[in-house]
């Protein structure tokens, strides 16, 4: 049964970085990045803060353009996409959440569907479904404004908003940063289920190695704008790369 390597090859590639560099002025924030993300994969981008994780995500949905190389999404380079169309096919949970303060929770979650011209009834049903999904009681939270929510509730709304039109790709930038450990654990579990259930391709940014191991099917370690290590969590644990060792050491992950 020489099937398995072939199957791996057959797996549809959703996002691919080809020798991507990104610089502001003379200094490069990202250098010669090569990455392949297949359909259904849960890729965790791990790295210290300032290492270039957010920038990597923004390259995928065209919020920044590579200064060299190409980012290919669904077989087409980002520069050839209509950026609006590209972004609407990619769910994005931004690091600072970025809810619209003048929109209710319902309007925030329903933002992209309403831009897409959904009918109010369908829209409302979808919003309630999503709020249920992220564990917020719709009747109670839908009419609230962001300033009437706790930090954790806001982050859940951010996730719901990103999922609204069921995008095949999900970019999540430290989405659970401000949560207490228990809530965090709960929502991480929910996300794992979600991803498995919905078959989404997720690119998830964190600097928390425990979170990385819990969620990832593949971990990519970024250090100073370079991809220094790529592999399964098990491979990562065995790695001798000094940056990987440092992450392991400080977090005392049981072997």
């Amino acid at each position: 049964m020489a099937k398995s390597p072939k199957l791996l090859q057959d797996k549809e590639i959703v996002v691919e970085f080809q020798d991507v560099s990104y610089g502001v002025g003379a200094n490069n924030l990202l250098l010669d990045l090569n990455l392949t993300i297949s359909k259904g994969e849960f890729l965790v981008l791990l790295g210290r803060s300032g290492s270039g994780k957010t920038t990597t995500l923004k390259l995928i949905n065209h919020l920044v353009m590579p200064t060299a190389g190409k980012v290919i999404v669904h077989g087409r380079a980002t520069e050839d996409w209509d950026p609006i169309q590209l972004r609407r096919s990619i769910g994005y949970v931004i690091q600072e959440i970025g809810l619209f303060p003048h929109f209710t929770v319902e309007e925030n979650v329903g933002l992209v569907p309403s831009l897409e011209g959904w009918k109010p009834k369908t829209l409302k049903r979808r919003v309630y479904e999503l709020l249920d999904l992220v564990g917020l009681e719709p009747g109670k939270f839908a009419p609230r404004y962001p300033h009437q929510l706790s930090g954790g509730q806001r982050q859940r709304v951010g996730v719901a908003r990103a999922l609204a039109i069921d995008p095949p790709i999900l970019l999540m930038d430290e989405p659970f940063g401000g949560l207490d450990p228990i809530t965090r654990w709960e929502i991480q579990q929910q996300l794992r289920h979600l991803q498995a259930q919905l078959g989404k391709t997720v690119i998830f940014v964190t600097h928390d190695i425990q979170e990385a191991f819990l969620l990832a099917t593949k971990v990519s370690l970024i250090s100073e704008g370079k991809l220094v290590l790529e592999g399964t969590p098990t491979e990562f644990k065995r790695s001798q790369h000094p940056e990987a060792r440092r992450f392991m050491a400080c977090c005392q992950i049981p072997q």
Binding site: N61, I84, L86, R87, G98, V112
Partner: peptide, 8 residues
Amino acid sequence: EAGRGMGM
């Protein structure tokens, strides 16, 4: 940034 990222 959020608005742009959502595809507005």
